[in-house]
């Protein structure tokens, strides 16, 4: 049913720590692996070994350069997957009822047997979290690993999403946002967890922890004074050399 639940009993989701993520893409690979071998249609690749390689992924890691007003620039790695929005526009646009949000835990899922592959839900998602699989012709998206988190056959430490289990930096956290004492709720409160594109009105469940400001001593390199340019307005031999070198092709005279 494409009507969104008024509220959900639990709000399962992820906290992604942009301060900690090292951009190794391990979560991308573990996600692709798990979701190709388990629930639903495989995440296909087309022309995997050719020049036009392309494939379906449910989680992708961008990298951004951020230049604050003062201090050095920072490089931020930015994993992005479905945010399991409370006002999920992808669900309400779906004509078939294939897309739905679960009342029990808030997870947004696609019933692949009902999906006609119209692609409208991918258009409705601001975050690019849905990809139509080129081979299966059905919409694929993050399931929050429903086939792991409720899977009693797995050891307890594995009953979390594959990306969270894999992250070597501990940049991904899984939990219930409806419980104010959960790990994810506490992290969000402590570190100022934020919504992506709040102006889109999707009310994402997943939260992003902003990078902490970098230490800045003001002096970047203790050897810097020794590396001051020699003779900017040189006289004598140095001045002559500077003029001659500048006059060569490629010089700046």
């Amino acid at each position: 049913m494409t009507q969104l639940p008024q509220s959900t009993d639990r709000k399962l989701g992820l906290v992604i720590d942009l301060d900690t993520c090292v951009g190794c893409h391990a979560c991308v690979i573990s996600c692709k692996g798990w979701n190709t071998e388990n629930y639903g249609a495989a995440l296909s690749d087309t022309d995997a070994y050719g020049p036009d390689v392309s494939g379906t992924f449910l989680n992708r890691v961008h990298s951004y350069e951020v230049k604050p007003e003062t201090g050095p620039a920072q490089l931020i790695h930015f994993p992005k997957s479905c945010l399991h929005c409370e006002d999920a526009p992808c669900v309400t646009v779906c004509p078939t009822g294939a897309s739905y949000k679960r009342t029990a835990d808030g997870i947004v899922l696609v019933n692949e047997d009902a999906c006609i592959g119209c692609g409208l839900c991918a258009w409705a998602c601001p975050y690019g979290a849905r990809e139509l699989d080129a081979t299966a012709g059905v919409m694929k998206k993050c399931t929050l690993c429903i086939d792991r988190i409720y899977n009693e056959n797995l050891p307890e430490e594995d009953q979390i999403p594959a990306c969270v289990r894999t992250c070597p930096a501990g940049a991904r956290h899984f939990g219930d946002f409806a419980d104010p004492n959960s790990n994810v709720s506490k992290l969000t409160a402590e570190r100022g967890g934020m919504d992506l594109m709040p102006e889109q009105g999707t009310r994402p469940t997943n939260k992003y922890l902003p990078p902490r400001p970098k230490d800045c001593s003001g002096e970047i390199n203790t050897l810097a004074p020794l590396l001051e340019p020699v003779a900017t307005d040189g006289k004598g031999f140095v001045g002559w050399l500077d003029k001659m070198l500048s006059a060569l092709p490629g010089g700046n005279a």
Partner: peptide, 28 residues
């Protein structure tokens, strides 16, 4: 606002998540 990392003037896309193209780029 998309990244939450600062103003539009401060944030620059440095490296895309994939080297080839994908559904999102082709479609949207």
């Amino acid at each position: 606002t998309a990244t939450g990392l600062g103003t539009a003037a401060q944030v620059r896309a440095f490296e895309p998540p994939h080297t080839g193209t994908n559904y999102l780029l082709k479609e949207m």
